[in-house]
């Protein structure tokens, strides 16, 4: 099968790289942006499985040339919508965090920190 256009493959890499990088930040708003970028990245990755630029999969106007594989398109559509739903939730969560902490950062887990600070086991059975 056709390999996809190189620029688009590189774009997938860039979207994933930047998306991951934003994801591992402490600010929840950046995490949201990271998710959006990753969503674009995965959509583009799916799109690249359809064999390259072609005519829209609409019956009837099939003119000259190859018609795109519609299945990835349908999956991308579903993914876009799911990402949208989850993003709204994440935003609401960011808002809630901001309400509690006056910032939107992901703090470390308190109990983990407490146990991390122990020097000796507290008890032996």
């Amino acid at each position: 099968m056709n390999t996809p256009a190189l620029v688009l493959v590189i774009t997938v890499g860039v979207l994933y790289g930047t998306g991951f990088y934003l994801l591992v930040q402490r600010s929840l708003m950046r995490v949201v942006l990271g998710i959006l970028l990753l969503g674009h990245g995965s959509n583009l990755a799916l799109l690249l499985t359809d064999g390259g630029a072609a005519l829209p999969p609409l019956l009837g106007d099939a003119g000259e040339g190859r018609i795109a594989d519609p299945l990835p398109h349908a999956m991308i559509l579903t993914a876009i919508v799911i990402t949208f739903g989850v993003t709204t939730f994440l935003l609401a969560l960011a808002y809630r965090v901001w309400l509690g902490d006056e910032n939107d950062e992901v703090p470390d887990d308190i109990e983990d920190r407490r146990i991390g600070a122990l020097a000796e086991p507290e008890d032996s059975a």
Binding site: L38, G39, G41
Partner: peptide, 8 residues
């Protein structure tokens, strides 16, 4: 996201 990537 990785699942979706895997499907791709």
């Amino acid at each position: 996201i990785l699942f979706l990537t895997g499907i791709a």
